[in-house]
Design a protein around this nucleic acid. Structure first.
Length: 294
DNA sequence: CAAGGCTCCTGATAGC
DNA sequence: TGCTATCAGGAGCCTT
């Protein structure tokens, strides 16, 4: 399940293999993959054709490729199982291939090491997709204006985040997953950062102290940077990086998926609780259930 | 308006 | 063996 580190790994792959290449042809093999492009698959295809990609950017789990001279960007979200693969044009189609982008530089040359490859969006569960949007003056596709900066963004405002937590009547894990407060954190890294911070997922945010918030943000960043250093994490074989190389990192997980296994800090068996149609993993000893607040 | 819950989707796996 | 139920979950959208 791609979260920020995985998406950043993909972005770097795109920067290396796809930036500055001109689109020759786009093929949409599943309409759901372009459902956020409201004008439809044919419109998506026609608008990309003949244009050159710029350098890809990312915010949280979203990434986008500017389309030069159009004022627009191709926005991509991997959802739960999406992959962006750069593949030789003659490699067999993946079972869940949804979108294919062919380039105008297929005659490989010494100057074009990427020649002979195409970009493929592969997605089993079809929660992800691609779409084309106007780029706002700050360089962001207009439809993700509501997505907050992510914790690895130098302009992320720690103090504003703390104040937002204090204002909200919500709980800490909900807040971590709220992409309008902080982006890029998904279920896995939320559980990891909370475990490191010894915070229970249902702890109210309204009375968090500034040092607690600072500690939590520090752990969020540590967990993400550790994953980035290894090239992204996943234990779900669905996740593959931009060149089709698996980005496994599961051995370093301290909380997620460790139900019944001893807490790496105190040895108490870890627990799993159904939570918001998913799961929360935590140590019942280190991460005490909060007292009922107000 | 804020908060919480529903829903989209496919495939692996468990259970009967 | 083969069927059904459950689980994985990001984020837009709907309800309260």
């Amino acid at each position: 399940m791609p979260e920020l580190p995985e998406v950043e790994v993909v972005r770097r792959g795109l920067e290396r293999w796809v930036a500055h290449r001109t689109v020759a042809e786009v093929e949409v093999l599943h309409p759901r993959a372009v459902r956020r492009h409201l004008a439809g698959a044919d419109d998506f295809t026609h608008r990309l054709k003949g244009h050159r990609f710029g350098v890809p950017s990312r915010r949280g789990k979203y990434l986008w490729l500017p389309l030069e001279d159009t004022g627009q960007s191709v926005l991509a979200h991997l959802g739960m199982s999406g992959q962006l693969l750069v593949q030789p044009h003659d490699s067999p189609d993946e079972k869940h291939l949804r979108i294919r982008v062919r380039f105008a530089d297929m005659q490989a040359s010494a100057a074009a090491a990427a020649g002979g490859t195409e970009l493929r969006f592969v997605d089993q569960r079809t929660f992800g997709g691609m779409s084309l949007h106007d780029t706002t003056p700050d360089g962001l596709p207009d439809v993700i204006a509501h997505i907050a900066r992510d914790p690895l963004d130098p302009l992320f405002d720690d103090e504003a985040f703390h104040q937002a937590l204090r204002r909200k009547r919500t709980t800490i894990k909900r807040a971590l997953l709220d992409q309008s407060l902080i982006s890029g954190v998904g279920n896995i890294y939320a559980d990891e950062a909370l475990w490191r911070s010894r915070l229970h997922y249902d702890r109210p945010t309204a009375n968090l102290t500034r040092p607690r918030t600072a500690e939590l943000l520090g752990h969020v960043r540590d967990v993400m940077n550790a994953a980035l250093a290894v090239g992204g994490t996943s234990f779900d074989s669905l996740y593959v990086n931009v060149n089709g190389e698996s980005g496994y990192f599961d051995r370093s997980l301290d909380a997620y998926g460790r139900e019944g296994l001893p807490c790496k800090r105190c040895g108490t068996p870890m627990r799993r609780r159904p939570w918001m149609n998913r799961s929360s993993y935590f140590c019942p000893q280190c991460q005490r259930v909060p007292r009922i607040a107000s």
